[in-house]
């Protein structure tokens, strides 16, 4: 309790938020749904900071699909999970439906998930495979958009400046015949911090044998969620085969750095990750969700 921030500033417009950030950004901690931040503040004894509550800013809760798909930073996980406008981004909907329990999903936001930059953030692998760009706004600098892959700098570190607010995320158009999915490994079927989370988007070749395009991203096995470009490169244009999938798994293992933690051992993560990759590719090819939760 003694470490909790002493002040709470609630803003009701983006302009107000930007003005606060411009003036006091360094000492302000931005609070949206608070499902990560409030746990951290209660448990970790973080330095007392002031909270800037942005949950009530109107206009940041929309999902727009005119040409580009845009997701407001305050869109909640549950909103995304249930949004039929995101049907082309099945992996994102699947991931959002598996962030914590429904209480977390009802208030936790996509913007929060992105800025929090947890190594285990479920929504980040799907955003990465859909070449998401993060829109940041500030009073002095206007607006800029950064590729998510560049926005994430490390474990819980991002390119956000103290005076900036993440206002939304845009997704690239999904490849026309592409199919995507998010496969999450947890010991239970829900309310797990991912042991491994992998998003895949595969465009099968018109010949039915080759992989025209493959995009892969993974979380919980490296300091921050990331694309697996090396594996994608290996598979692109190749004919699908057991040998190719084996090799893909091996290359993947060279580019991730799983650790032992209370949720799973390094050994388990290393064993399961290549299997999840295979499973995800197979699900994309068969165009099924592949969700490991029982009812799917």
């Amino acid at each position: 309790m003694s470490q909790m921030p002493k002040q709470f500033i609630s803003v009701s417009s983006q302009e107000e938020a930007l003005a606060q950030l411009d003036a006091h950004g360094e000492e302000l901690q931005i609070l949206a749904g608070g499902t990560d931040l409030m746990v951290q503040l209660q448990q970790s004894g973080q330095r007392a900071q002031r909270l800037l509550h942005i949950e009530n800013i109107p206009g940041l809760r929309n999902i727009t699909c005119n040409g580009v798909t845009g997701i407001g930073a305050l869109c909640t996980h549950r909103q995304i999970a249930e949004s039929t406008s995101l049907d082309n981004y099945r992996s994102l909907r699947q991931a959002a439906a598996q962030v914590g329990g429904w209480q977390t999903q009802m208030v936790g936001t996509i913007g929060g998930n992105v800025v929090n930059a947890s190594p285990a953030a479920d929504t980040l692998p799907p955003l990465l495979i859909h070449n998401a760009r993060v829109t940041l706004v500030s009073q002095s600098g206007g607006s800029r958009a950064v590729e998510l892959g560049r926005f994430l700098l490390g474990r819980r570190q991002t390119d956000r400046r103290h005076d900036e607010l993440v206002s939304g995320i845009t997704l690239a158009r999904r490849p026309e015949r592409g199919r995507d999915c998010y496969i999450k490994v947890g010991r239970r079927s829900a309310t797990e911090v991912a042991i491994v989370g992998l998003a895949a988007c595969v465009t099968p070749g018109r010949d039915g044998r080759t992989l025209e395009d493959v995009r892969l991203a993974i979380c919980s096995v490296c300091p921050m969620p990331k694309r697996l470009y090396e594996v994608e490169h290996l598979m692109q244009g190749e004919e699908i085969s057991e040998a190719l999938l084996e090799e893909a798994g091996e290359i993947m293992l060279k580019h991730i750095d799983p650790i032992d933690d209370v949720r799973a051992s390094k050994r388990y993560r290393s064993m399961v990750a290549p299997r999840v990759l295979k499973h995800a590719i197979a699900c994309c090819i068969e165009n099924v969700s592949g969700d490991l939760r029982p009812w799917n």
Binding site: F8, S10, L31, G34, T35, M38, V39, Q42, L51, H53, E55, V107
Partner: peptide
């Protein structure tokens, strides 16, 4: 409510 700020 255990992780929701009252002021929010």
């Amino acid at each position: 409510s255990c992780i929701y700020a009252a002021m929010a």
